[in-house]
Amino acid sequence: MAGLALFALPLAGLLARTPWTRLPALLSGEVVGDALRVSAVSSVAAAVVSLVLGVPLAWILARVAFPGRALVRGIVTLPLVLPPVVGGAALLFALGRRGLVGAPLEAATGLVLPFSLWGVIVANTFVAMPFLVVTVEGALHAQDRRYEDAAASLGARRWTVLRRVTLPMIAPSLVSGLVLSWARAFGEFGATITFAGNLQGRTQTLPLAVFVALERDRDTAVVISLVMVLVSLLVLVALRNRWWRAP
């Protein structure tokens, strides 16, 4: 019960401070709409990129023995431990305009990641993908290899085995990894503001909008926080019922 109170109390505090009479006016403000759009696009994009890049990574970590695997696993999960601000600063040093990769990238393509939506997606993916990799790798470890062996002995090629046996068997973990990485990206603050900056309509996500609004208009900050809580709860509750039915 005390555990539940720890989660429920801040929520109650937020509801107690909500300016209900001004709610419609504040909700229809441009800042809220812009931030919701940037957040939706960047968090979904980050989750999709995490899926596309993270599943092969998880498969290699779970199934291929190679020297230095422990180190690679450590590097992949580092963003789970690192303060996001440190991650954002590291991204700047690597991918910023004067960064290791960022400078040649700008020279070659004209693409500058900081202060762009791409930058938000990169920052979000950086902090979110480890959740998918860890979840999927765990599922691959726990999987009974005999199903794959049986499929292979019946003549299925490796790609067919992966597509028809391995991935369907770990589907629930794929989805929960995807949802976890989306949720982490949706709430991302530190890496985003450090790497991608803060501009309404371009890089200002909901968490950034809350932080900036706290400076001058607390009611708006509370309302944006409420929007975040609602969207997150809706997604988490809906997907929970769909994918991990309670026993």
């Binding site: 900081p114 202060f115 503001i193 900056g197 803060n198 501009l199 932080f211 900036v212 400076e215």
Partner: peptide, 15 residues
Amino acid sequence: SLDTEEPDVRALLTK
């Protein structure tokens, strides 16, 4: 024509 609005002056200075 801005690219970012930083939360405090030190964050702006760093960039």
